Simulated assay, not measured.
Amino acid sequence: MKLFTKPKSDEDKLIEGCIAGKREMQRLLYDLYSKKMMVVCLRYAPTTFEAEDIMQEAFVKVFSNIGNFKRDCPLEFWIRKIMVNTALKHLRGKQLLTVSHEAEEVSNLASESSSLTGYSLDELLSMIQSLAPRYRMVFNLYAIEGYNHKEIGEMLDISEGTSKSQYSRARAILQGMISRQENNYKNVISS
């Protein structure tokens, strides 16, 4: 009696090829995910150059550790997690995760919520990249990656309350940027 075995998916074949060290499979995996992962890295890095460095370092980790990948989560999620952790490690190494002292700027910003419609991905990334490193990290981890403040605190070695405060400040700064851009646009239209 022969047992039915599930045919291998394209993703399974890709993973197995990468585990075997096949360059063409590694290239295919890189080509499939590099654009999405570059966007992830750009959210954390202060410059495109640093984002590229982070992404390259992270893909080296992906290929080195793909044999440990457990298929209980999507491959893209696993790669994204490596990208985020590599970005955090990179920025910790550069000591860019020190506490920011922008309280005066935060208190002067408008706290009203603004709409994000009409903004391109590049404009939003630029706004996020302009945040101080700690604010950028907490904002990305909470608002985009979906970590809670307790997890963020553990990842960044800060308290849960500090994470909440940093997120609140980051949001206020971003809302202020959006408000200023909208006001500039209105002034241009009315003149």
Results as ranks from 00 to 15, higher is better:
165 S>D: 08
178 I>K: 01
184 N>I: 12
75 L>N: 10
79 I>V: 12
176 G>Q: 05
38 M>A: 13
61 K>I: 04
146 G>L: 04
75 L>Y: 09
17 G>S: 04
102 E>S: 10
146 G>N: 02
90 H>M: 02
35 K>V: 14
141 L>F: 02
65 N>S: 14
52 E>V: 09
148 N>G: 08
133 P>A: 05
135 Y>E: 03
76 E>K: 12
33 Y>W: 14
93 G>C: 02
99 V>S: 09
151 E>Q: 07
66 I>T: 00
36 K>N: 15
7 P>A: 03
32 L>K: 15
8 K>G: 00
137 M>T: 01
91 L>K: 03
51 A>V: 06
43 R>C: 11
103 A>T: 06
164 K>I: 11
142 Y>T: 05
109 L>S: 11
127 M>L: 13
66 I>H: 02
136 R>V: 06
148 N>V: 07
43 R>P: 03
59 F>Q: 00
162 T>F: 09
16 E>P: 06
119 Y>V: 09
60 V>P: 02
144 I>M: 01
52 E>Y: 09
152 I>G: 01
26 Q>V: 07
14 L>Y: 01
178 I>W: 01
183 N>Y: 15
191 S>I: 15
149 H>S: 02
182 E>T: 12
45 A>E: 01
170 A>F: 06
67 G>E: 02
43 R>L: 05
36 K>C: 11
42 L>R: 15
9 S>C: 05
77 F>C: 07
46 P>L: 13
183 N>R: 14
34 S>K: 15
36 K>A: 13
35 K>I: 09
142 Y>A: 11
93 G>F: 01
79 I>S: 05
119 Y>G: 05
21 G>M: 04
68 N>L: 08
7 P>W: 00
